[in-house]
Design a protein around this nucleic acid. Structure first.
Lengths: 152, 152
DNA sequence: CATGAAATTTTCTCCAT
DNA sequence: ATGGAGAAAATTTCATG
C-alpha cells in the first residue's frame, strides 16, 4: 500500500495522541472529517496501524526498576532457540526481547518493582529456562528517552 | 492514589486495546458504563494513564533496522551529561535511551531504514555529539517480544 | 473527498446505596 | 464516596454526489 505526505502527518498525530477526535485531526490536516476517517480505516486495514494502546506511567504504579539482560545460550540449535523464545514470551516481566547479531545473543528488557523482585525473577524464572549459558545484567539509573512513535 | 483489582483489570484491557468502547469494557468488568467512565477519568487525572497512542508496524513501513548502541562519555560532569541527554532527545532515530549503572554508560535503541541509514546516523548525527568516548553497536536479527503493557 | 444524516458513544445530571 | 440509569451532547460511521 502507498501512503502520502498527509498519511505521514496523520500517523504522526495518532502516534502521539490516538484519542483525538477525527474533527480535531481534520482541522490540523485541513481535511474533512470523512477524509480523515477513511484514511485511518485504510491505515488500520493495511496493518500499518497495528494497535491502539494506553501507556501507563511506570513510576506512578511503583514499578520502575528496569534491567537489561544479555543472554547467551549454551547451544543454538533450532530447538533450543524456539523453546527459549517461547518461554520468554510468557514472562510478563520481560517487556522486550531481541535476538541480536554478534554473539548469537539475546537482549531482554525486564521491568519489576525493585532489586529484590529482580533477584527473584532471575532465580525463579529466567535461570529456570533451560540452555541458558551466561547472563549479564545492567540496571537503569534513568530513562532519558522513551517513545513509541516512529518518524516516517 | 489507590487502585483496586478492578482498576488493575481495566488497565490491562486499556493497555491492550484503548479503542474499546466503555460499553465493551463495562461488559468485561461487570460494571456500568458510568463506573467505567469514572474509573478511566480517575486513572487519567492521576497520571497513571499518561498517553493514548497508535502503534505502527515497523516492517510495514520499511523501517525495521534496529540497533542498540552502548555509549561511554569521555567525562561525566553534570554539563556533559545534560548536554548529551538533550541532544539525544532530539534525534528521531533514537526511540529509547537509558542511563545505565556499571560504566556510567548509556544504551540507545535506534530505528532506521537499513544499514546504510544506520551508518549515516552514526557518522552524521551520533558521533557529532561532543564528549562521546566510545560506542559499541549490536544489530537486531529478530524481535522476539515487544510489549508496552505493564503487568500490575 | 465533501456534505449531511443515522447510529453509536461519550459525557453529564440526578438518584440510590 | 461510589456506582447505576437515562438524557444530552458529541462523535463516528455511512449514504450520496
Amino acid at each position: 500500500m502507498t501512503f502520502d505526505a498527509i498519511d505521514r502527518e496523520l500517523l504522526k498525530l495518532l502516534q502521539n495522541d490516538s484519542k483525538q477526535t477525527n474533527k480535531a485531526l481534520s482541522l490540523q490536516l485541513n481535511l474533512s472529517v470523512t477524509a480523515v476517517y477513511e484514511r485511518i480505516k485504510k491505515l488500520e486495514k493495511s496493518g500499518i496501524v497495528k494497535q491502539y494502546v494506553a501507556l501507563v506511567d511506570k513510576s506512578k504504579v511503583k514499578k520502575d526498576f528496569v534491567a537489561f539482560c544479555h543472554i547467551k545460550l549454551v547451544q543454538h540449535s533450532q530447538d533450543y532457540v524456539v523453546k527459549f523464545e517461547r518461554e520468554v514470551n510468557q514472562l510478563h516481566e520481560v517487556l522486550e526481547c531481541y535476538h541480536l547479531s554478534g554473539d548469537y545473543d539475546y537482549l531482554l528488557k525486564v521491568l519489576v518493582k525493585d532489586m529484590k523482585a529482580f533477584r527473584e525473577f532471575m532465580v525463579e524464572k529466567l535461570t529456570k529456562i533451560d540452555h541458558i549459558g551466561s547472563t549479564h545484567s545492567m540496571f537503569m539509573i534513568n530513562e532519558v528517552k522513551h517513545t513509541t512513535a516512529i518518524t516516517l
